[in-house]
Design a binder for these strands. Structure first.
Length: 973
RNA sequence: GCCAGGGUGGUGGAACUGGUAGACACGCAGGACUUAAAAUCCUGUGAACGUAAGUUCGUACGGGUUCGAUUCCCGUCCCCGGUACCA
């Protein structure tokens, strides 16, 4: 009897839904396990085979943990705010909510087909106002808190106000803007409401700030770096410039140290942790103030320029200073002679994105301002340059140039003919390249001459602090996160403006719903789309914030909402948060390494400070799944042409398609016209070259829908039916097949390489798809999608079925006692499956299951005791067929989901004899055979076993014996 | 550029802690069953040489450490992700 996967799978999906098999609640009698997928953005292209990869893995773990007796929370939802729906709205006028709703419906339908054990009653959508009410609520908490460095946590802003009123801000050790002045309580109390509120903004964890954005005047909007290609907008090709704009910011830097320290307590890959550490970029160094040489500068020029350096010890090697081209000091430092050159340079830089500037480090560019600073240590005059490798937003926007110790500075100095001063006696070849060594003794270095690195740094820092011109400082690469977007489809910021200052709306007024607007573009005056909303004023009077929140707002806390998704009083009840606590296993793409995962950790720490959540880190274990790339297929169309003269080229595209092998020959210049003409004759009587003088041909590659290609072989009939212009296609085959070309590209609609899971579920069933996706390779590795091997997984399912049914359709499972050989096969599998799942090696489990089923097939095993355990073992991977077989074995329907995982018994694996492989002098191989009960303990333990070998060599003493557990690796004679 | 990861047969990959490289699967070739096809089952399948036993080479490339390296170290090349407004 053939296994009818369609019927069986449908039946069990229905069963799970009808019986709410996977609905989870608080159950204190069981240990809890929270396994979560990074929720998807519901794009218009629907779910492709890359999405389920991580979902299948997490589902396997969820099902495995249920078998292990855990109460498992395994939810799914949608990160449904985002740019694509808004772009679509701009193009078509359809409200993003409608687009989003449609896409989510598709996603849910597709997800349900794969048999995930989600508790759908806990679904969340970030664009649902019942959800974003709480995103806005968290924003309000951030606004109402500041970071106290002494308490090392966020505290209420009202506490801060109290402190200001009683003792000013001198004794307050809090994270705030760099330019915050010191004031007394008297001064504070004398301040106007406006000044007090402005001052508090310098402390709040979210605050309005000036930041640089990609401004596109042509579109009247701000663009993501992603939307800018080569200095122009991807959409429309308009000019893009860098512009400063008022934006909400999140004071994530307040948490920088805790974000670094917290990495020690999570089980994430070292690579990912390293990336986060580097992103935060804590560097210890010093800030140094350089006095500006007043003789050449303009009025209002600053007295000092401050730089941050991690190598204060190189200060005597400074031969120039560079400030960012957009630095506010630039106009004051530029001399009249240099003005033209400086203006031109600044203009050029403004046209370049930050990414361009960072990327093209090899090309040195810059311009002299005409002014100088004085090196405080040796009173040397140092020229001030502008260069685009210095970014205004990082540090002080100014750096000191030490060509002998830094390659970029060296390149700059060489380009502008600036001196390169050696500062360490160990530096070599500094006329050819920089040498960044810290070894050796200082030379040409005033007060640190003859000292070594550590002492020198200490001496200099002390000197700086004594003179009040600098201090030891910890600097972070991490910048405060920009939190506004000039977009429509995002959470409105629950803020209104009074007298130019932001105020929160009342909590009771949440959610602040997105207003309805008719067009989704910015306003004519350059305001964000929300500026179009009519009569949208707070209390009918005050202007609301017109920006919306960024994509990451809603995704920075969603795992708590799943715990109690319907709660209208809180973002989740304390009871549920304290039960589920944190995510035990989180699976998602590595592209979120520094975005989502960092912001989420930040918000989680903040919520922890408020006492709302119990854990400092939100995800204990994290696995990054690799990206699935597309694998495009090509057909090769024959084009016939003649080249009479350049003016008279005639090209005719024929309906003849050549198999890939001919294309390869063609590319290598091995395919002659005669050969092509001969091949063409086999499919058509027409002379395609009739009337052509000097005939030529070409093979044109075209993408072909991968869904009508199987194992790179084209389904020629499906191709003819695919599109009208292929209806009359003729094919030049190889070995009777039309073989397509292959290329790895991004998955995209236009390349016809999007493989849709629905089609595969229809063709081979959800179990096969689940099995195959896991079998593809290590979860964490990026790989192109390839459907070629899926038959192997399909065969596995059919083989399992045949363990239960004879060819004639009789159920053959017997209630007999299993043989030792059968038990060995089963228990080998139990051990491997368990071990591999515990280390999240999803692909090797599939091999283990395949070997187990093959072996049981060879043993013609149809014993109930064996098959029952096998079915449980398979159930996380192939739940549908497992459910079916489980009931066929006489168990109650649906109980397999909470059955217990087979217990491994090592005694079934013990052999009577064990062969120890041995090699002598690295070459000759032989085996020593021992009865198992006589295996020497020192071989098991992997220690030297000279005696044993000597005995085996009949008395000859080996020089050296190298033994590893269960193997004598080498005997050196 | 910078940060991080990767490169193993015709293909996807396995080898977990430095210990018999290529498990498992796809594909291919041959065979069995069949009127035939499909399905299924069996055998072979890294390369070179050899009738064979076997020998040599072989984990991107070049070096190093080690009795022993796909694994550790140094250098080079190539591919993928991130690079702060894609999500």
């Amino acid at each position: 009897m053939e296994y009818n996967y369609k019927e069986v799978e449908q039946k069990w999906r229905q069963f799970w839904e009808d019986n709410q098999t996977f609905k989870t609640g608080i159950d204190t009698t069981k240990p809890k396990y929270y396994v979560l997928d990074m929720f998807p953005y519901p794009s218009g292209a629907g779910l492709h085979v890359g999405h389920p990869l991580g979902y299948i893995a997490s589902d396997i773990i969820a099902r495995y943990k249920r078998l292990k007796g855990f109460n498992v929370l395994h939810p799914m939802g949608f990160d449904s705010f985002g740019l694509p729906a808004e772009q679509y709205a701009i193009q078509t006028g359809q409200h993003p909510a409608i687009t989003t709703e449609e896409n989510i419906t598709t996603y849910i339908r597709q997800l349900k087909q794969i048999g995930f054990s989600y508790d759908w009653t806990k679904e969340v959508r970030t664009s649902d106002s019942k959800y974003y009410k709480w995103t806005q609520w968290i924003f309000m908490q951030l606004f109402n808190h500041y970071y106290d460095k002494d308490a090392n946590k966020a505290l209420k802003i009202t506490d801060l106000v109290e402190k200001f009123a009683t003792s000013g801000n001198k004794s307050v050790n809090a994270v705030c803007d760099e330019d915050t002045p010191v004031f007394t309580s008297e001064e504070w109390n004398a301040m106007s409401e406006f000044d007090q509120q402005s001052m508090l903004l310098k402390y709040r964890l979210t605050y309005p700030d000036e930041s640089v954005v990609n401004w596109c005047p042509g579109l009247g909007t701000v663009l993501a770096n992603d939307e800018v290609k080569d200095g122009v907008s991807e959409r429309g090709g308009f000019h893009v410039e860098q512009k400063k704009m008022k934006q909400w910011a999140m004071r994530i830097t307040a948490y920088a140290d805790r974000l670094i320290d917290g990495l020690n307590e999570v089980d994430w890959s070292d690579a990912l942790k390293e990336q986060q550490r580097n992103w935060i970029g804590r560097s210890t160094g010093a800030s140094v103030k350089f006095q500006v040489d007043a003789s050449t500068v303009q009025e209002n020029a600053p007295e000092f320029i401050e730089v941050f350096t991690t190598r204060v010890d190189t200060i005597y090697g400074v031969s120039f200073m560079v400030i960012a081209p957009e630095h506010e000091y630039v106009p004051f430092l530029t001399t009249p002679e240099q003005k033209e050159a400086v203006d031109e340079y600044v203009k050029w830089v403004a046209s370049r994105s930050e990414l361009d500037r960072m990327s093209e480090v090899k090309k040195v560019s810059g311009v002299f301002t005409g002014s100088y600073v004085i090196n405080p240590f040796n009173d040397e005059k140092v020229p001030i340059y502008l260069a685009d490798y210095v970014l205004a937003g990082y540090g002080t926007g100014a750096v000191m140039g030490v060509p002998s110790g830094d390659q970029r500075d060296w390149n700059f100095a060489t380009h502008f003919n600036l001196p390169i001063i050696p500062i360490l006696d160990t530096q070599k070849d500094i006329d050819k390249q920089a040498d960044n060594t810290k070894e050796g003794k200082y030379i040409n270095s005033g007060i640190i001459n003859g000292l070594e690195y550590k002492e020198a740094t200490k001496t200099l820092t002390t000197y700086l602090e004594e003179k009040g011109i600098g201090k030891g400082k910890i600097q972070y690469r991490l910048r405060n996160a920009v939190f506004s977007r000039q977009r429509y489809w995002g959470e409105p910021v629950p803020v209104y403006f009074k007298d130019g200052l932001p105020y929160l709306i009342e909590e009771s007024e949440l959610p602040l719903d997105l207003p309805v607007i008719d067009k989704y573009l910015p306003t004519e005056t350059g305001e964000p789309p929300l500026g179009r909303a009519e009569n949208w004023k707070y209390k009918g009077e005050y202007e609301y914030e017109l920006s919306t929140m960024p994509g990451w707002a809603g995704s920075s806390w969603y795992w708590y909402r799943y715990m109690d998704a319907q709660n209208e009083q809180e973002f989740a009840s304390q009871e549920s948060i304290n039960y589920w606590k944190a995510i035990d296993l989180y699976i998602g793409g590595s592209e979120h390494a520094t975005g989502h995962l960092l912001y989420s950790r930040f918000w989680n720490k903040f919520l922890k400070d408020l006492g709302l959540v119990p854990e400092e880190e939100f995800a204990k274990k994290l696995i990054n799944q690799g990206m699935i790339q597309g694998r495009s297929n090509f057909v090769y169309r024959l084009a016939v042409s003649n080249l009479k003269s350049l003016a008279e080229i005639k090209i005719v595209y024929t309906d003849i398609y050549f198999s890939h092998g001919y294309y390869t020959q063609f590319k290598n210049g091995e395919l002659s016209l005669e050969k092509v003409q001969e091949l063409v004759k086999s499919v058509t009587d027409k002379n395609l070259w009739e009337g052509f003088e000097n005939p030529k041909f070409d093979l044109i590659d075209r993408h072909v829908d991968v869904n009508i290609v199987n194992n790179d072989i084209l389904d020629t009939n499906a191709f003819k039916n695919w599109r009208e212009d292929f209806a009359n296609a003729e094919f030049i085959l190889e070995d009777g097949k039309y073989i397509c070309g292959v290329e790895v590209e991004k998955m995209s609609k236009s390349k016809y390489n999007v493989v849709n899971p629905d089609i595969l579920v229809d063709k081979v069933g959800a179990d096969t798809l689940r099995l195959y996706e896991m079998f593809l390779g290590p979860l964490e590795q990026a790989k192109p999608w390839n459907t070629n091997g899926i038959d192997g997984s399909f065969r596995f399912i059919k083989k399992v079925w045949r363990l239960f049914y004879e060819d004639l359709g009789n159920f053959k499972v017997k209630d007999e006692a299993p043989t030792p050989a059968e038990l060995k096969v089963l228990h080998t599998a139990i051990k491997k499956v368990e071990e591999d799942l515990e280390r999240y090696s999803f692909n090797t489990v599939v091999s283990t299951l395949m070997i187990c089923v093959n072996d049981l097939g060879s043993l013609k095993c149809s014993k109930k005791a064996i098959l029952q355990e096998l079915v449980i073992l398979m159930s996380p991977y192939t739940p549908h067929i497992a459910e079916e077989l489980w009931t066929l074995l006489g168990n109650e329907a649906g109980t397999i989901s909470y059955a217990s995982f087979p217990k491994f018994n090592p005694s079934y694996l013990v052999e009577a004899n064990f062969e120890y492989p041995i090699s002598i002098n690295g070459k000759v191989r032989a085996n020593i055979s021992f009865p198992t009960d006589a295996i020497p303990a020192d071989i098991e333990a992997g220690v030297l076993a000279n005696e044993i070998v000597q005995k085996w060599l009949e008395g000859k003493a080996p020089k050296k014996v190298i033994v590893v557990p269960k193997r004598i690796v080498n005997v050196v004679m």
